[in-house]
Write a protein that binds this DNA or RNA. Structure first.
Lengths: 113, 113
DNA sequence: GCATTGAATTGATGGTTGTCAATATAGAGG
DNA sequence: CCTCTATATTGACAACCATCAATTCAATGC
């Protein structure tokens, strides 16, 4: 249902559900998708992730420290991304390497309708 | 994270930037994209948006009140979505109608690769 | 005018978040 | 052993957020 002229489309105290009531995401999908969106909702975190994801291989943490925040803050954001399942880390000697988790962003397609 | 064989890839005190240093989002784009992600980072807000976006036309607020939270909270979330530029509202008589802003999600493509 | 209904705002509250300084942990190399 | 360097963790603090009850605003109808 689309247009409704300002004439009395609605009965008293009742409004027509013009659009499908079951439309939109279900609760479970919305919860999971919201987690991913939340993980990417910070500018610093977004830049960290896109830099990691831009690499086909892996990225050394030492290469992505220049994002304007302190080292502990970078570590904090990387942990958030890891907990959200967007990236994966691996220690090799002194350095730690990060790489994107394949298919982690497919949940976002649920929004593109 | 799993430990791997430690072959000395890095020289002492210096780490190779194997990936392009200019990769990832620039500061401005990241800031804008993060706003959109943040607007969609709440389960309730996500369901509200997807229900509005699922409609080709417009959606009456009265049709999307059943998301498990109180009426003021729904209004609060709709305001957030409006401030983020994702939806648009219009009052017609007693009821208020919402519709998605076209192309508001194109920013998200910056992350998909 | 008054009463009613739908939606937005206000105020308060408990919880979460981003940030940094300080500290801890882990490995490499004496 | 000890020192040095690279990440991670802890603790603290201000800012923000999601939620609801109470109230206000807007429009309709009597």
């Amino acid at each position: 249902m689309t247009v409704k002229t300002s004439s009395a489309v609605h009965a008293a105290g009742e409004c027509d559900d013009s659009c499908a009531p079951g439309s939109g995401l279900d609760v479970a999908t919305a919860a999971r998708a919201a987690e991913v969106f939340k993980a990417l909702s910070d500018p610093v975190r977004l830049r960290l992730y896109t830099r990691i994801a831009a690499c086909d291989g892996e990225t050394c943490v030492c290469d992505i420290q220049d994002v304007g925040v302190s080292q502990p803050t970078v570590s904090h954001h990387l942990r958030k991304l890891r907990e959200a399942g967007l990236i994966d880390s691996e220690r090799r000697g002194t350095w730690v390497y990060y790489r994107p988790v394949a298919g982690a962003l497919t949940v976002l397609d649920a929004v593109r309708h």
